[in-house]
Structures are given as structure tokens and as C-alpha cells.
Design a protein around this nucleic acid. Structure first.
Length: 864
DNA sequence: ATACATACC
DNA sequence: TACTGGTATGTAT
């Protein structure tokens, strides 16, 4: 019965502003009094008004939902109930209680670090952040209602003595590294969620631990250095042991179990403690080591899956731990009384919507599943269902590659165009720098604006090629900004925040779809009752996931198969990959002799990017582009599949499904499997009319990523256009282009990107060719003409990649007949004010005059 | 593909 | 005086 109950009423707007006391450390506060102060401090502010507005939107959403609910018939509900029960049964069957998952969370992390380093703070309510915003507060301050995400000036009203300490991220990062070293001892694959939080899979550690001698489980106080590690004293000895976080946690649920001397004294004179073999002991040991090493405390939750572990770590916070036994009964009991809001993923809004349906605890959630399945999206109610059953991930997902990178800044009102522009540039500079650090390039640039009324807008543009430099990013961002200004004019944009984000990274992104499809194939061989908590949640148990596999993944292969025929005109619909691939083959043939080194500066740049965690080898990304001689054997590179000990391993089935003949191959030996595929491929090529994989497919570079946890991962590396080009460009290509420091960029106002995605390609009659580079529909079905167009496009991209600064004034003729490109065109521009594709911009409407002549067009300089 | 909303720390 | 910044993901169009 949190603030949600009252908030379903008309005065619900309180719920956005009101104190959020639901996360640990704030029990039994005088909420009314606190909320009153918060309201008084906020009322009438622009922020408050905006919150009101958003509250109303949520309320409308709820109203809509209630209306929907009112129209549901008993029969529908019954049907839904049946479905829910089916799915529940399936989920139940897949329940896995065998893993021991731990969630560790440092207590009041930033605040604790600051208190450690500044003893005067220990007795005081304090918070880390600024008058504008607090990152976290210590437990003293929480008693006043002061908490993370609260602006400092309001916190000050709640607690006039509050000391606000500015953030010092370098320090937190340093501590973070220290604790991660300890995490790694218990699970080398642990997943950090932030500087102060991580998920660990203790299963393997516990198994090993059983045979460890006491000495390996003995840890000293303070002066560290135990049998199992060689920690050094890195922190000032100053505070005595008893004083470790005394103020913060004196009455914590389970404080340090033993004081120096109570267990023993080592030869060196320091106290030590021997920890047992149980999970609890192991986790306690880990927390102990953290405290000894950093003088900071952590809390932990132990449970059979991540969702529960997360909740558990909160239970005895601070400086405590809680274990949920691995039995179905314990889990179900635990979940019954769990407020939905405690579950990660259910936030303020979801909570409110659920509350409106009379749902506040997870037991309600279970009871109302049929209803929920009708009112919420599939993903949403599937999540709810899992939560209600106490299910969650039983493996620690690997750290995914990043998908976007951004930077944003809040400032006092900024309305001047010039100032906005230079700010925009600054952001781009910062972003470009960060991009460079990680060697990333992305195709989508997004501008984020928040006006002084706190209204947020995002404007995005996706380029046909990936960018990373300041100029490239800025040229897009500033156009987006200008467009916004134009849209608002004559009113100025009164901004309080601006941000720039870049996404759609090429180095990693474009591989994934195929990669998934391969996994899908491999999994077909196994009886997939799935289990949401099993290895690959995404492919596991829901019809949705299966649908994805069938409709999205498999057809990719079908399309590949269709490639040969489509080139003869029988099957016109080609995927982007096919077309790019066809082009590649053609180029390879043409350039067979002239091909030189193959990897220009651009290629090596891409190579050097690697990936987030350095697990993937990115060199393969262009290997496959040049390998016209690639053996079909490489379809699956003969990397040994590593025997798996964790749940991930179950992805490997007893049999594998051949992507060529679709038969199951009775083997787990990938060499055997490769041989089979080779055989299939050669069979196929001798029987052209069979349902086969075209030989063009053989240069899909699939390989098993054995380094990556225990998942057997086969990826198809899709050749990136840019790389492709780099390796295939010829001297002639380059000579044919001018480098007059003019950048050519595509303007694509009204593109008719006709359906390269449609699965039912076979039925199509009229050929639709879309340039894989500029994405414009080509009206000619003559492949020679089409290729010519693609050539020109390719050249442009190569040029772009070659130097950013270089460019061409080439005017790409669209492939011919009539309507082809109306709206799309190419514009040259000075690099420093490069133009980009845009749509619906008043300054560059999709215009017919552009057709076929572009290069002389210009767009007004931004802000004159 | 784009825009916006929600969520987490 | 003053209500963050970074990332991911879901939903709707």
C-alpha cells in the first residue's frame, strides 16, 4: 500500500512528485510531512508543471486501460486464462533452481566513499551531488527523506544540516575496480550493472569450494593478505576496525560477525576468520573481503535467479545479506508478498497501472494474469507472469556490446542560435572523442532537446554509412537542430538541455541478425521446451520468440537461397544482404587481378575497433569480404566447442540442424558438422534446381565464439559495405573521383524503400531493386544499369571512408526511368558544413527539382 | 526508421 | 537559483 493506492484518484499527480520511499533505508518516515515540503518546494515550478502534465498522460493511459477492461467478456477472459495456464505450465516445467545467483550492491556507495575519506562527515546527514541533483545520500540523511535523484535544494529543506559533497567519479571508479577484483574470485564472468553493483553466478565457485582447505577460506582483518589472495593495504590505516562504517550501519541487520580476536589471531598478529563452505559463508566472505579492502560495506542477495537475487540484496541492506532457498515453495512464498514495485523493471508507471487494477503484490499479479494478458503487451505480461512465478534469468548474461553512446548537458536557458550551435558542436566533440576511444562508428545520430518547460524532444537521422568524427556527427546534429529551430520559428528554442547520441554501430550491429539465425537453426535440433530462465531467454519459450525465429530468421536463409534465381530475374526480391553480396561477388570478379592489399586505412580502423569486451575478433569482419577463395569449410570454423558447465551450455544440442539440407545431423562434433555442410554444399551446387544454398553463401563467415562464456555461439559475419568496398576498390575507382574537399552526402527526402524485408518475396512479380548503399529504389530492372548505379554509390562511400575530408562531386544518377528517386538526391557541401539526408525539412523539402541533378544544390548555412 | 516513454543506477 | 546523465528497451506510428 504505497503511495500508489491514493494515486489512482484524481489527485494522482502527487505520485510523480511524492517521496519514493520504497527502496530501502526509509522505513517509518513521516511521509506526509516530507511530501508536504517537497510539494511546497516544487509547486508552480516549470518542472512541477511538466510533471503534472506527464501524470495526466499516465492517468489517461490508465483510463484507456480501464475502458478496455470493461469491455472484456467472460468468454474472452476464460480463453485468456487457458492460455495463461498453458504458458504457466510450460514455464513451470522449465523452472531451474540449480543455479546460485548472487546480487551484490554496495551500500550508499558514493556517500560511503566520501564518508570513508572524510571522517567529519560520518556523524552528519550527507549526500553526494549538487544543489540541483543528488546521486545518493547516507543513511542519516535518508531519515529526513533525503534520497538519490532528489534535487539538493529540496533535500536541504528536508534537512537543513545536510552536507552536500560533490561527486568524485574517479574515486568511485577506483573503488569499483577494487571490488571487482574480489567479484572475479567468485565468478570470473560476473556482470557489473554499475559501479557499485553486480550479478555473480556462485554455482561453480561453491562446487570448488567444497574441496578447499580451511586455509583457502581464511581471511584476515584489515591487513588483508590471506591464503587465497594477496591484497595489499591500500587504504589509510586510520579508522580502527571497529569504526568501519560505524555511523552508517551500526544497527544493520547482520553486521560483521566477528570482531578481531574473537576467532583467532594470526601469526602476523592480525585477527582472521575462517569462513565455511556454504553459500552464505561464501557470500559473507566476499562481503568481508570487500569491507576489509575498501572499508565499505556491501549487501547481497542469494537466490536461484537474478530477478530474485536483486530483490534479496535489498532485503537486509545495509551491510546484510539474504538467502532465498532454492525450492519452489520458498520462492513462491517469497514472491507472494513481494510488492510489484520491488521488481526490477516495474517502475513508477507500471506500478500505478497495476495498482489501478488492484494489483500491488506479486500474488495479485498471478491472480490477474488472464486480465493482464489482455490489457498489456505480450512482452509486458510475459514478464509479469514470470515475476509472479518467481522466475528470472538463471545465467549471468554476458556483457553486451554497447548499442549507443551519448552525451548531454543541462544548462541555464539557452535561446541564442549561435550559442546553441556552439554547444551542439561541443557535445559532438565530446561524443566523437568518446567514440574514438572505443573505436566505434555509427549510422544514426540523434539530437535530444529539452526546453525550459522540461519538454523533451528527440530528432534522429540515419545515414547510409557509419560516422564517428566531430565533423560528421556535427553536420548531422546541427541540421537536426536547425530543422527544429525552423519548425519552432518564429519562436526561439528555449533550451535547458541538449544531447547528442549515436547508435546503429556497424562493427557489431550488422552481424547480429544472422548470428541469431544460426543459433536458431542449431536449436531446432533440440527439443525446445525452452524455459525462460534457461540459456537464451530470447529463443527460449515463448511463442513470440519462436515466431521470431521462424518468420524473421529462417527466411533469411530462404532469401539467400533465392539469390541465384533472382539474378536471372526469376526471383526479383532481394534482401539488402543479397544485393550487397551480389555486388560484392561482381566486384570480386572484376577486381580479381587488380586487388591489392585490400585493407585500407579505413579497414584497419574498423579492425582496431574490436568490441566492448574484446571477446570478439573483429578482423573477421572483413576477412569474409575479401575471401573469394574462402573454403566452404569455413562455413563453421572448426573451433572446438567447449564443454559447458553452466546453463549456457545447454544451448548445444545433441544434434545440429544443417542449414543447407535442413536435416538434423547426429553429432555435436563441429568438424563433423562442417564436413556434412560441405557435402551438402557440393551436392547442392551440382543440382541447381534443388532447394539449395547458393554458393555465394559460402563466404558467410560463421564461427564459434568459444571464448564467450559457455554459449556456443555461431555467428555469421555480414560483410559490411564499407569494408567490402575498401577491399575491392580499384585504382580506377579512385581516379574517377575528384578530391576537391567536397563532401557528397545523400539527401533522401521521400524514399520508397520497398520491402526488402517482406518474407513473401516469392510471390512478387515486379522487380524492385533498391540500391544497398543509398537505399533508394531503382526503377530499372536491368541489372547492369543497377550495378552501375551501385558502383557509383560505392565509390562515394569509399571516398567518404577514405578520408572524411575527401569527397567527390560526383553526381549519382539514379537508375533511370521516371519515378525512381523523386525526392532523393545527392548534395555536395563543404565538409565543415556537410549536408545530410533529411526529411520533411522546410529547408529541403523532398523536391522534384532535385531529381537527377543534385550536385549544385545547397542548403542554407545553419543559422545564416 | 523515428519519436516518445519507461526504467535502472 | 536550483529537478542529472548514460544506456537500454518497449510502444506506437
Amino acid at each position: 500500500m504505497e503511495n500508489g493506492a491514493a494515486s489512482t484518484k484524481a489527485e494522482g499527480f502527487l505520485s510523480r512528485m511524492a517521496l519514493n520511499d520504497n527502496k530501502a533505508g526509509m522505513e517509518g518516515l513521516d511521509r506526509d510531512k516530507i511530501n508536504k515540503i517537497i510539494m511546497e518546494s516544487s509547486k508552480g515550478s516549470r518542472f512541477y508543471e511538466n510533471e503534472l502534465k506527464r501524470e495526466q498522460q499516465v492517468n489517461q493511459r490508465i483510463e484507456k486501460m480501464m475502458l478496455q477492461k470493461a469491455q472484456i467478456t467472460d468468454q474472452q477472459l476464460k480463453k485468456a486464462q487457458a492460455q495463461v495456464e498453458r504458458m504457466t505450465a510450460e514455464l513451470e516445467r522449465s523452472r531451474d533452481l540449480s543455479r546460485v545467483i548472487v546480487h551484490v550492491d554496495m551500500d550508499a556507495f558514493y556517500a560511503a566513499v566520501e564518508m570513508r575519506d572524510c571522517p567529519e562527515l560520518k556523524d552528519k546527514p550527507m549526500a553526494v551531488g549538487s544543489m540541483s541533483m543528488l546521486s545518493t545520500s547516507n543513511y542519516h540523511a535518508r531519515k529526513y527523506g533525503v534520497r538519490a535523484a532528489m534535487p539538493g535544494f529540496i533535500a536541504k529543506k528536508l534537512c537543513p544540516n545536510l552536507v552536500i559533497v560533490p561527486t568524485n567519479f574517479d574515486k568511485y571508479r577506483a573503488v569499483c575496480n577494487e571490488i571487482r577484483e574480489i567479484f572475479a574470485d567468485y565468478d570470473p564472468h560476473f556482470q557489473p550493472m554499475s559501479l557499485d553493483e553486480a550479478y555473480l553466478d556462485f554455482t561453480d565457485h561453491l562446487q570448488q569450494r567444497q574441496s578447499w582447505p580451511d586455509s583457502s577460506r581464511t581471511h584476515r582483518f584489515r591487513a588483508s593478505s590471506t591464503a587465497t589472495d594477496e591484497e595489499q593495504i591500500e587504504l589509510p590505516q586510520e579508522p580502527e576496525m571497529k569504526d568501519l562504517s560505524p555511523v552508517l550501519f551500526e544497527d544493520s541487520p547482520s553486521s560483521s560477525p566477528c570482531l578481531p580476536g574473537s576467532e583467532g589471531v594470526s601469526a602476523a598478529g592480525g585477527a582472521f576468520e575462517v569462513f565455511g563452505k556454504s553459500v552464505e559463508e561464501a557470500v559473507r566472505e566476499m562481503r568481508f573481503r570487500i569491507e576489509q579492502k575498501t572499508m565499505l560495506t556491501a549487501s547481497a542477495g542469494i537466490a536461484p535467479n537474478t530477478m530474485l537475487a536483486k530483490v534479496c540484496s535489498d532485503k537486509n541492506k545495509p551491510n546484510g545479506q539474504y538467502r532465498l532457498p532454492s525450492t519452489r515453495e520458498a520462492v513462491m512464498d517469497f514472491v507472494q508478498n513481494l510488492p510489484v514495485r520491488k521488481v526490477s523493471g516495474i517502475g513508477k508507471v507500471s506500478e500505478k497501472m497495476l495498482n489501478a487494477l488492484g494489483i500491488s503484490s506479486c500474488s495479485h499479479l498471478g491472480q490477474q494474469m488472464a486480465l493482464l494478458s489482455m490489457l498489456f503487451s505480450e512482452t509486458a505480461w510475459h514478464h509479469f507472469l514470470q515475476v509472479s512465478l518467481g522466475l528470472g534469468s538463471t545465467y549471468i548474461p554476458r556483457h553486451e556490446e554497447r548499442k549507443s553512446m551519448s552525451t548531454e548537458r543541462t544548462f541555464r536557458e539557452l535561446s541564442e542560435a549561435e550559442e546553441q550551435l556552439s554547444l551542439c558542436r561541443e557535445l559532438c566533440e565530446d561524443l566523437a572523442q568518446d567514440m574514438k576511444k572505443e573505436g566505434l562508428k555509427g549510422k544514426t545520430v540523434t539530437l535530444k532537446l529539452k526546453n525550459v518547460n522540461f519538454e523533451v524532444k528527440t530528432r534522429a537521422l540515419t545515414l547510409p554509412y557509419a560516422v564517428a568524427t566531430v565533423d560528421e556527427i556535427f553536420s548531422v546534429a546541427k541540421d537536426l537542430l536547425k530543422t527544429e529551430r525552423d519548425n519552432e520559428s518564429p519562436q526561439p528554442l528555449r533550451l535547458r538541455l541538449m544531447g547528442v547520441r549515436i547508435s546503429a554501430f556497424v562493427t557489431s550491429d550488422d552481424k547480429k541478425p544472422l548470428q541469431k539465425s544460426i543459433i536458431g537453426f542449431l536449436q531446432t535440433g533440440k527439443t525446445d521446451s525452452g524455459g525462460s530462465q534457461g540459456t537464451h531467454q530470447k529463443f527460449a519459450c515463448f511463442p513470440l520468440a519462436q515466431k521470431c525465429q521462424r518468420q524473421d530468421e529462417v527466411p533469411r536463409w530462404s532469401k539467400q537461397r533465392g539469390l541465384e534465381r533472382s539474378q536471372t530475374g526469376e526471383e526479383p526480391q532481394q534482401s539488402f544482404f543479397q544485393r550487397a553480396h551480389a555486388k560484392r561477388l561482381q566486384l570480386q570478379a572484376v577486381n580479381a587481378n587488380t586487388e591489392e592489399e585490400g585493407h585500407g586505412e579505413n579497414a584497419s580502423e574498423i579492425t582496431s575497433t574490436g568490441t566492448q569486451n574484446g571477446v570478439e575478433s573483429s578482423t573477421k569482419a572483413h576477412d569474409n569480404c575479401t575471401a573469394s577463395d574462402r573454403s566452404e569449410n569455413d562455413f563453421v570454423s572448426p573451433v572446438e566447442a567447449r564443454a559447458s558447465t553452466s546453463g549456457c551450455g545447454s544451448a548445444v544440442s545433441e544434434r545440429l540442424t544443417c542449414p543447407v539440407c535442413f536435416r538434423q545431423v547426429e553429432t555435436t562434433d563441429l568438424n563433423d558438422f562442417n564436413r556434412h555442410i560441405d557435402q551438402c554444399l557440393s551436392d547442392a551446387s551440382s543440382k541447381p534446381n534443388q532447394y539449395t544454398v547458393s554458393d555465394t553463401e559460402s563466404d558467410l563467415d560463421l564461427e564459434i565464439d568459444h571464448k564467450e562464456c559457455e554459449v556456443m555461439e555461431i555467428r555469421a559475419v555480414q560483410c559490411e559495405v564499407e569494408e567490402d568496398l575498401t577491399s575491392n576498390r580499384t585504382q580506377e575507382d579512385q581516379r574517377s573521383l575528384k578530391s576537391d574537399s567536397i563532401q557528397t552526402v545523400l539527401i533522401n527526402g521521400d524514399n520508397k524503400t520497398v520491402t526488402s524485408q517482406q518474407p513473401q518475396s516469392c510471390n512478387d512479380k515486379s522487380p524492385v531493386l533498391i540500391c544497398p548503399i543509398c537505399q533508394l529504389t531503382q526503377d530499372s530492372d536491368d541489372l547492369i544499369i543497377f550495378n552501375h548505379h551501385v558502383d557509383l554509390c560505392l565509390n562515394r562511400v569509399v571516398l567518404h571512408e577514405l578520408g572524411g575530408q575527401t569527397s567527390s562531386s560526383i553526381n549519382l544518377p539514379s537508375v533511370t526511368n521516371s519515378k525512381a528517386i523523386d525526392g532523393g538526391r545527392f548534395l555536395p557541401a563543404q565538409v565543415s558544413k556537410g549536408k545530410t539526408k533529411r526529411r520533411d525539412s522546410p529547408s529541403s523539402p523532398p523536391s522534384k527539382k532535385a531529381k537527377g541533378l543534385g550536385p549544385r544544390n545547397t542548403i542554407d548555412k545553419f543559422f545564416r
